[in-house]
C-alpha cells in the first residue's frame, strides 16, 4: 500500500510537472530576451484558460483544437500588448516595468471578473482513465503532458536550429552585440514576447482541462511559475522544464504525505533556498 501510494504520487507529480514547466516557459523566455519579469503572467494564464473555454463552449469543437486556436489568439494578444505597452518598458528600470505589468494584471483580472463572473469554470470533458500495474492516471493529465512536452520540444528545437532561434539566443546573450551583428532586436523582442504570451495561453488552456479556474486564480500559478523559472535558471527554457518536474513532484509529495494546502509554502521555501544556496538556479553556467 505504501509503495502504491508512493508510485501514484510520483506519477501524478511528474504529469502535473510538465504543466508547471510549460507555465514557466513563457515567463523565462520573455525574461531571457528582454530582461522583463512578466508580472501579469498569472492573469494571462487565466485569460488563456477563458479563451480556450469560450472557444470550446461556443463552437463545441474538440477541446484540443480550441486550446490551439486559443494559443494563436495569445500570439496576437502578445503582439498587441507589446505594441501598446511593453516596447516602452524594455529600457525602463525594473521597478517601473514590474508596476506597469502589475497594472496590466489588475486590468485583466477585473475585466475577466466583470465579463465572466467569479464562478469557477472548467472545460467539461471526460477522458478515460488509464491503469497500468499499480498506478492509475486520468487521461486528461496524460493528454496535457503530451501537448506540454510537444510544445516544449518545438520551442527548444526552434531556439536551437532555426535562424530565428539563433537570433533569439544572440539577443539573450548580448542584445547590443546582436544589434551590431545585424539582428533586428526590436523584431526579436516583439516576437519573443508574443511567443511567451502564447505559451502562457497554451498553459492556461491545458490547465482548464485538469483544474477549475476563476479570474483571480492566476496568482498561485504565477507564483509557481516564478519558483520554477528561478529554480531552472531565469532565461533558460530547458532548465525551466526540468525545474517544473521537480516542483510537480514536490507539489504531489506534499499533497500525499502532508496537506495540499501547504504545497505553495513548500514551493516558496524552495525558492528562498535556491536563492541562498544556488542563486543562479540549477542550470547556472550551463547555457
Amino acid at each position: 500500500m505504501a509503495f502504491e501510494l508512493l508510485a501514484q504520487t510520483i506519477i501524478n507529480g511528474l504529469f502535473i510537472g510538465f504543466l508547471f514547466g510549460l507555465a514557466g516557459m513563457g515567463l523565462t523566455l520573455i525574461f531571457g530576451i528582454m530582461r522583463i519579469l512578466n508580472f501579469a503572467h498569472g492573469a494571462i494564464i487565466m485569460l488563456g484558460a477563458y479563451t480556450a473555454f469560450w472557444i470550446f463552449i461556443l463552437y463545441s469543437i474538440n477541446p484540443l483544437v480550441a486550446i490551439l486556436i486559443g494559443t494563436v489568439a495569445g500570439l496576437i494578444f502578445g503582439v498587441v500588448l507589446y505594441m501598446i505597452l511593453v516596447n516602452r518598458l524594455v529600457r525602463a528600470p525594473a521597478l517601473a516595468s514590474l508596476l506597469a505589468l502589475f497594472g496590466v494584471s489588475m486590468i485583466l483580472e477585473n475585466s475577466m471578473l466583470n465579463l465572466w463572473s467569479p464562478n469557477p469554470r472548467s472545460i467539461p470533458v471526460d477522458y478515460p482513465t488509464i491503469s497500468y500495474g499499480l498506478v492509475t492516471i486520468s487521461g486528461s493529465r496524460v493528454l496535457v503532458s503530451i501537448v506540454a512536452i510537444a510544445a516544449s520540444v518545438l520551442l527548444l528545437a526552434t531556439l536551437k536550429w532555426t535562424r530565428f532561434g539563433r537570433m533569439i539566443r544572440a539577443t539573450v546573450q548580448d542584445s547590443r552585440a546582436a544589434t551590431l551583428m545585424g539582428v533586428d532586436v526590436n523584431k526579436v523582442y516583439a516576437l519573443g514576447f508574443s511567443i511567451g504570451i502564447a505559451l502562457a495561453f497554451l498553459a492556461g488552456g491545458l490547465l482548464a482541462l485538469i483544474y477549475p479556474f476563476e479570474p483571480f486564480g492566476g496568482l498561485q500559478y504565477a507564483l509557481y511559475s516564478f519558483v520554477v523559472v528561478v529554480l531552472g535558471t531565469l532565461g533558460n527554457p530547458a532548465g525551466c522544464l526540468f525545474a517544473g518536474l521537480i516542483i510537480g513532484l514536490i507539489h504531489s509529495i506534499t499533497g500525499s504525505y502532508w496537506t495540499l494546502n501547504m504545497s505553495p509554502a513548500v514551493a516558496y521555501l524552495i525558492l528562498v533556498l535556491t536563492f541562498l544556496l544556488r542563486p543562479g538556479g540549477i542550470m547556472a553556467g550551463r547555457e
Binding site: R35, F39, Y268, V272, P279
Partner: peptide, 26 residues
C-alpha cells in the same frame, strides 16, 4: 534576500509574503 537585485528581489519578497500567508492559513 537583500543580496538579490531587481526582478529576483521582487520574486523573493512575493514568495516570502505568500509563504507566511499560506503558513498562517494552515
Amino acid at each position: 534576500i537583500l543580496r538579490l537585485r531587481g526582478d529576483y528581489f521582487a520574486i523573493a519578497t512575493l514568495g516570502i509574503n505568500e509563504a507566511v500567508r499560506v503558513t498562517i492559513c494552515n
